[in-house]
Simulated scan of single mutants.
Amino acid sequence: MSPQRRNRRAGVEDLWTRGDGTPSARHGQGQRWRARWVDPSGREVTKAFRRKTDAQQHLDNVTAAMVADQYVAPEGGDLLVRNLVPKFLAGLDVKRSTMQGYKSAIDAQIMPRWGNVPLKAVTVSEVRAWLTAMQRGDPDGKTKRERDGLTSGSARKAGRVFSLILDVAVDDKLIARNPMERVKLPREGQPRKGKSLTRDELHALAAQMPAEQDRVLTLLLGYTGLRWGEAVALQASAVDYRRRRLHVHRTYGEAGGSTYAETPKDHEARWVPFPPFLADELHKLTEGKASGADLFSNTRGRPLQGTNWLPRVLRPALDRAGIPDAEDRRIHDLRHTYASLAIQAGANVKQLQRALGHADATITLNTYADLFEDDYAGLGDLLEPPAY
């Protein structure tokens, strides 16, 4: 708390008259009545009025607002949005990849439009217009993205980050309400439907991989459902051959061409089972390696990067294996492949949730609903009564 000032006064003062009733030096100049109060931070604040009743009314309103914990600093709304961004970022406790996403939205969408705007000038109507304009695009834009506009998902993300920044202003008593409360964000874009492989396609793909570690990595992704960052961050010590489990406790993220280690999604470590045949494949990679060494690495011993592995290794191998739509395939499709194979093998939702590292089963059902629909179609046949 800031230091207390001596002789602070709270009340309404007559600026034109001294305490003994004689005219003051500023008699007849400016506004006569001044409301004085001490804000919640211990700072003395004043505001002048022409009429005493107005000054008293303002003081009463300020007092009521402080009692109700709704007080707002008079000059708080004058602060520019850009001045609030460092405080917002400093208060975040998120993974590095999430932080990068926030900074990207701030730099690309929020700062150009709102950086030099005072907080009090951020209105509901202007925010709605901004969200619409981002998606509409600008025919005169310098880049294709500027001309085409953002997807609804990207615009929604920018709006959500902006709302979080304005929440800081509300918490710090700079503005009374977050104008984003009355703004309906764009709908979440339709998620891309995964393109799973059959078991035969998965093995055909692995056989076309240019290097042994690429072949094993492909099988690992398709038979364990690990996210790319989790798979390439596996160390030799993560493989438990006795229980046939992989200890997933770290992941690699990518940003700006660099790779960094962090905790898995939702900060949850987990053990993921792998099929017996993968034990021999993994032995080839772990043999002779130190316990802390990565299972997969590039020729320089650095972590593999998905942005490089996808076009350089995966898509050419898909073409060679005769699998259609190679250019539309993603690494994440191998995770979808695992889910498909596991469901066909009889895995239930809870088992799949644990293996995939989802926070709850609802995410699993929502993400792989189409696969469960295929499984659901055979339910009638399973309920066929025995013949007598």
Rank of each mutant, 00 (worst) to 15 (best):
K195F: 04
M209S: 05
D93A: 12
A355N: 14
R244C: 07
R96K: 11
T251E: 11
H358V: 00
E212M: 09
P275E: 13
Y260D: 10
D93V: 12
T263Q: 15
A255T: 10
R96P: 00
D370S: 13
F372K: 13
Q56F: 05
V117K: 11
D54A: 15
V72D: 07
V170A: 03
G346S: 11
A233V: 01
V38E: 14
F162I: 06
G101Q: 10
G225Y: 05
L197R: 10
E188Q: 15
G229V: 10
R36H: 09
L174G: 01
R96G: 04
D325P: 00
T307H: 09
G149E: 07
P324I: 06
L356K: 09
N116E: 06
P40D: 05
L166V: 03
K120L: 08
Y376L: 10
N366A: 02
A90W: 02
S291Q: 10
S152H: 09
F49T: 15
R243D: 08
N298R: 10
N7C: 04
P139W: 14
K193C: 04
L352N: 02
R245F: 01
L92Y: 01
R250K: 15
R26I: 01
L334F: 03
G189Q: 12
V272W: 03
S258A: 11
G159Y: 02
L131F: 04
E254P: 05
A211W: 07
D325M: 13
D69L: 02
L365E: 00
L278W: 01
L59T: 07
A317R: 11
P324N: 13
T53E: 09
P276I: 11
D171F: 00
D319T: 11
T22L: 07
D93I: 09
M1D: 04
D319I: 06
L356E: 03
A108P: 01
R270T: 08
I331S: 05
